[in-house]
Computed example of a mutant assay.
Amino acid sequence: MITAYTLNGKSLDIQPLTVADSLPPKTLWLDIFKPDEEEQSWMKQLFVEEAPELDELDDIEASARFYRDKDGLHIHSLFPQRLGKEIDGINVLFTLRNDMVISLREDDLGLMRLLRHYMRQDRLEVEDAPDLLLEIFQLKIEYISDLIEDGYKTLEDTGKEVLQVDDLHRTMSDLMHLEDGNGHVRLALYDTRRALRFLKRSLRRGASDEQRNWIDEMLYDIESLLPHTQFLFDKINFQLEAAMGFTSLEQSKVIKIFSVAAVVFLPPTLIASIYGMNFEIMPELGFEYGYLMSLVMMLMSACGTYYFFKRKGWL
């Protein structure tokens, strides 16, 4: 799917395109979402060198994620995306030219929908392509900040539930999702910092003072958010260890009950074993109240053992 965003004053108009259409005038942003073979061929007319492909989105080398060629600046940026309780990372390739931004992505991205919503409400004001790209990164940082705040709220809830046996499995599942999501958030922050630094170096001559200050402010925001992700990691690990320790404690209580029960019934078992032997000469075999005496001895030995454990505070 190809969508063109044309500049209208300081706002953007949205115009879907097909492969039969030509690029509209004043196109500031061309968003290409999961292109098929025909759309991939149509893309080639936009590039002097080789057009990017979807399988290049997951490259991790810095030289493949941030570089300049005849087509402009190429920036691979990682966007966190919440899907229920899970957070995933989605790569988007941006190509920045003097007059246009071209984005290529394989997955739907909620941040793009939010950006279109701002456009329809005229809440987005841009003057050129760098402005638009910086707006996208600004929204990304704000979204990451919201995810971190959600992480704090989730930790407050799990902190209250971590010692509740009934919800322990669900709580540990929430903590595992939060730990994985926080990893994606932290990775997205590092990736965004690298992208903005590359953008600042590349635009040091062509960018306005306002745009350079904007980049500096976003870099400052990223530096202020990174310690929060580390704190979340520490807090998550603490709650996971507490949950596992509480689980071990509950298991120890169960094992303790079985151990005490085995020891309590050990003396009666010994007495029963003695009188269960089939020796020919056993004085008690001829005793009229021998059976009753053995039952009383077994009961007293069990009660005595229980009282001993109770007095020692082991029960």
Score class of each variant (00 low, 15 high):
Met1Ile: 09
Met1Val: 11
Met1Phe: 09
Asn8Arg: 02
Asn8Lys: 08
Ser11Pro: 00
Leu12Ile: 07
Leu23Ser: 07
Leu28Trp: 10
Leu28Arg: 07
Leu30His: 05
Leu30Ile: 02
Pro35Trp: 04
Pro35Met: 04
Asp36Trp: 04
Glu37His: 08
Glu37Arg: 10
Glu39Leu: 01
Lys44Ile: 04
Ala51Asp: 05
Ala51Val: 13
Leu54Ala: 03
Glu56Leu: 12
Asp58Trp: 05
Glu61Asn: 15
Glu61Gln: 11
Glu61Ser: 15
Ala62Met: 11
Ala62Pro: 00
Ala62Trp: 03
Arg65Met: 10
Tyr67Gln: 05
Tyr67Pro: 06
Tyr67Leu: 05
Arg68Met: 04
Asp69Trp: 03
Lys70Arg: 13
Asp71Val: 02
Asp71Gln: 10
His74Gly: 08
Ile75Gln: 05
His76Trp: 03
Leu78Cys: 04
Phe79Tyr: 13
Phe79Leu: 11
Gln81Asn: 09
Leu83Glu: 14
Lys85Val: 06
Val92Lys: 05
Phe94Thr: 06
Arg97Trp: 05
Arg97Asn: 02
Met100His: 05
Met100Thr: 09
Ser103Ile: 06
Leu104Asn: 01
Asp107Gln: 13
Asp107Pro: 02
Asp108Ala: 11
Asp108Arg: 14
Tyr118Ile: 01
Met119Val: 10
Arg120Phe: 01
Arg123Leu: 13
Val126Gln: 08
Glu127Leu: 14
Ile136Glu: 07
Gln138Cys: 00
Gln138Ala: 09
Tyr143Phe: 12
Ile144Trp: 03
Gly151Lys: 07
Thr154Phe: 02
Leu155Ile: 09
Glu156Ile: 04
Glu156Asp: 15
Val162His: 11
Gln164Tyr: 03
Asp166Gln: 12
Asp167Cys: 03
Thr171Gly: 08
Leu175Ala: 01
Asp180Phe: 06
Gly181Ser: 11
Gly181Trp: 12
Leu187Phe: 09
Ala188Tyr: 07
Arg193Ser: 11
Arg194Ser: 06
Arg197Lys: 12
Leu199Ile: 08
Lys200Ile: 00
Arg201Asp: 09
Ser202Thr: 08
Arg204His: 11
Ala207Arg: 02
Asp209His: 10
Glu210Pro: 00
Trp214Lys: 08
Glu217Lys: 12
Leu219Gln: 07
Tyr220Leu: 15
Asp221Glu: 15
Ile222Pro: 06
Leu225Thr: 09
His228Arg: 14
Thr229Ser: 13
Leu232Asn: 07
Phe233Asp: 15
Asp234Arg: 07
Asp234Lys: 07
Lys235Arg: 15
Ile236Tyr: 00
Glu241Val: 08
Gly245Cys: 00
Ser248Pro: 02
Val254Tyr: 01
Ala261Lys: 00
Val264Gly: 01
Val264Leu: 05
Val264Pro: 03
Leu266Ala: 13
Ile271Asn: 06
Ala272Gly: 14
Tyr275His: 05
Gly276Phe: 09
Asn278His: 04
Glu280Phe: 04
Ile281Lys: 12
Met282Gln: 09
Pro283Arg: 09
Leu285Gln: 12
Leu285Thr: 13
Gly286Trp: 04
Tyr289Leu: 10
Tyr291Trp: 15
Leu292Ser: 09
Ser294Arg: 10
Cys303Asp: 02
Thr305Glu: 08
Tyr307Val: 08
Arg311Gln: 10
Lys312Ser: 12
Trp314Thr: 10
Leu315Met: 15
